[in-house]
Design a protein around this nucleic acid. Structure first.
Lengths: 239, 239
DNA sequence: GCAAAAGTGTTTTTCTTACACCCATGC
DNA sequence: GCATGGGTGTAAGAAAAACACTTTTGC
């Protein structure tokens, strides 16, 4: 941090990139925008943009998220800084350092209409083809991070609407992890963690058209999950 | 990522800040430098510096680490990106976005002599008084991150020299977590995880002057630790 | 009645925890 | 001998995993 003047005149552009994840019809989706200019014109990319002079990366991410999704109320949504991508050649035109975030939304908040000219769209995670820049890696990192945090935090409720059933919460886990979970054990685990969910007294909802109506819950106040709820598959888990 | 020109002329300075941690005489230490100029002249701060035009934040962090510690071989050392601090007012003079890293060294690699003019010194973690800028927070975040990663990765060996005993490895855990662990259980856990440590065949070392010589181990190839080795205290654990 | 989804119970196994105890060394 | 640190054994408890079974709804 000493030697301010030395390289102070080698400025960098600083951007945020957003991996906005949601669940639609039981599948993980990501918000992508189609690039309207070079480089990568016509390719899909993660939404994002430059930091304004007076805002932090977190604020910039929230602003971009609001702009891209058309949502005015993004205050309560989960936004998590992933890491910063700074390879010198990650943008062919100029030196761009990008602070990446993962954002979690309950269901499609709206089909969204971005304020930017470029088209934006929810795309199934698996079909989010080759993206522009290093966005494939950012997206993969976001998925991995979210999956890992599901193990030891109550983050999964961020994918759920204000009121949800345990079956829906379990589907969130199963979709993000890509594995099936045992329902009885999942129930017990969630209910045994104080503050993970809290029951909505009278409510009950019919989920699949058939079957017994399910009890309705709200997200609790707890953030940590102890003991953790570990993913079944050990293979291919990064450090 | 669209709209390159919009704010492209509001450049930011980009720096790296390093929370370099090591264990000396059973206590966690952090590498600090004394600032030779305003602001915070005379205060202690985390080492760091500006990104060069052609290097990534990771490379810059490694370069600064080598410069500050006087170590030529910092290639194998553990360097982990923490997060990026970008509050607009974090530096009173100009807009500086800083990518923070945590670095783990086995013992003092040397008393180190920095190439920079400012004095650098190992300081006990607890006595790392109020630091310049937001470095107190960065340091606390680094400690928390390292402690958390000890639970589910084999990271602790990064604090150990190439050859170490299980008692020494246990001390690493105890020092970073600030809690005592049960020796028999710790042993079993470590040895039950394939690839965490591997025995050095003939070797044995006398650790405390007295007592039975301990078997010597090397770091294994595994990175993940499954099942995890969870910290005993659940209180005050962040999300 | 049947299928589908929610919810309960139980058993087995695995992991954690808390100890008691033995071994090898320096003094 | 005895203090010190390394290493082994074991039994109780907690948690995870597997799976059988009941309940309530729509058709």
């Amino acid at each position: 941090m000493q030697g301010y003047d030395k390289y102070a005149h080698e400025p960098f552009a600083v951007t945020v990139d957003l991996a906005v994840l949601t669940l639609r019809e039981g599948a993980l989706h990501v918000l992508l925008v189609e690039r309207g200019q070079e480089p990568y014109r016509g390719h899909w990319a993660l939404p994002g943009g430059f930091l304004h002079p007076d805002e932090s990366a977190e604020r910039a991410a929230r602003r971009e998220l609001a702009e891209e999704t058309g949502l005015a109320d993004v205050s309560g949504l989960h936004l998590e800084q992933l890491r910063t991508y700074s390879e010198p050649d990650r943008d062919p035109r100029m030196r761009v350092v990008s602070v990446a975030f993962a954002a979690l939304l309950p269901d499609p908040p709206e089909p969204h209409g971005g304020s930017d000219a470029a088209e934006a769209r929810w795309v199934p995670y698996d079909k989010a083809g080759p993206l522009a820049f290093d966005h494939d890696r950012i997206l993969a990192d976001a998925h991995e991070r979210v999956g890992a945090k599901f193990e030891y935090t109550c983050l999964a409720t961020a994918f759920c609407p204000p009121e949800f059933t345990l079956g829906e919460l379990q589907q969130v886990y199963e979709t993000v992890w890509g594995t099936a979970l045992d329902r009885p054990n999942f129930r017990r685990k969630v209910l045994a963690t104080p503050g993970f969910v809290e029951a909505v007294p009278g409510a009950a909802r019919l989920t699949g058209g058939r079957g017994k109506p399910a009890a309705v819950y709200r997200a609790g106040t707890a953030t940590a999950l102890y003991p953790p709820l570990l993913r079944p598959s050990r293979e291919g888990r990064p450090a």
